[in-house]
Design a binder for these strands. Structure first.
Ligand code: FES
Ligand code: FES
Lengths: 139, 139
DNA sequence: TATATACCCGACTAAAATAGTCAAGTATTC
DNA sequence: GAATACTTGACTATTTTAGTCGGGTATATA
């Protein structure tokens, strides 16, 4: 089980932004430099964040991105969803009548993996961007 | 975040075995047929399970594999470890002085991912093979 | 003791996912 | 009008995953 860079970078970047006064546009270039994340990659990530109403953009000089909501109201689960990053532990299509082995109903372990999936999603559901302890000036 | 087939199949196969009387060797061929998992793939998986003292093998006709311990004493975390399957959510080398961004100490989000890693490992640590509800005759 | 069964184990490969790059554009401010 | 910075789709190298294969060895049973 591995967390991909896209999700990690997204949270890193948003955490970076949340250190600055709200309504103060932060440019991807700056985030890129501070967090050592490829600018091109950030662009890709922020496109999704914007489409999902987590940030809004300000174009032009001194532009950048701004958090659309207070970090207290941004759940990690939303960030993941924005990037199409799902927690997938079952081997089957959940709604299918068939199990992961193509047979009968669900396999012996389906219930277990389902429980795990819920367990993990629960973590993301209960964490907010504001829960990251951000001491200004750290990284 | 996705769980790979190796881990899933390993648990499936062991769950399958645990339905039979202990000391009764179960052949991979049978598991393969019942659970629709490639025999070759199972061989690969059981090699590891054996090396890690989770099962033992009985060679020859009527041979197969036998659980080395009571399912009550086999934690899922052991099964995962046996297959070299680690939960990895941080982007850095945990013991390194450098963060995932190559800079200074740990990055802004390190603590969060670390917490997640512990959280997930906790699930595997507390689940035993015997916790799978195995109604004999199901799959 | 021949034969079939079943484990043993390393090497190999196709396909999918990931991580990142690039190019050609548009809007805004100074 | 020049510089900055977002916009968007397409493209690619690398890595990981999932699975295959071949040529073994050990053992029970007939
Ligand atoms: S995981 Fe859902 S049927 Fe096997
Ligand atoms: S995740 Fe450990 S330093 Fe970034």
């Amino acid at each position: 089980m591995k967390l991909n860079t896209k999700s990690r970078y997204a949270v890193m970047a948003l955490a970076d932004m949340s250190k600055f006064p709200i309504n103060n546009p932060v440019s991807l270039r700056d985030i890129s430099l501070r967090q050592s994340i490829s600018l091109f990659y950030l662009e890709q990530i922020f496109l999704k964040l914007k489409q999902n109403d987590i940030v809004k953009s300000v174009r032009g000089t001194n532009g950048g991105y701004v958090l659309k909501r207070d970090p207290k109201n941004i759940k990690l689960s939303e960030i993941f969803q924005a990037l199409d990053q799902k927690v997938k532990t079952v081997g089957c299509k959940k709604d299918s009548k068939k199990g992961c082995n193509g047979k009968s109903a669900k396999c012996i372990t389906h219930e277990l993996w389902d429980e795990l999936e819920i367990y993990i999603n629960n973590f993301f559901e209960n964490k907010k961007l504001s829960d990251l302890s951000l001491t200004r000036g750290n990284n």
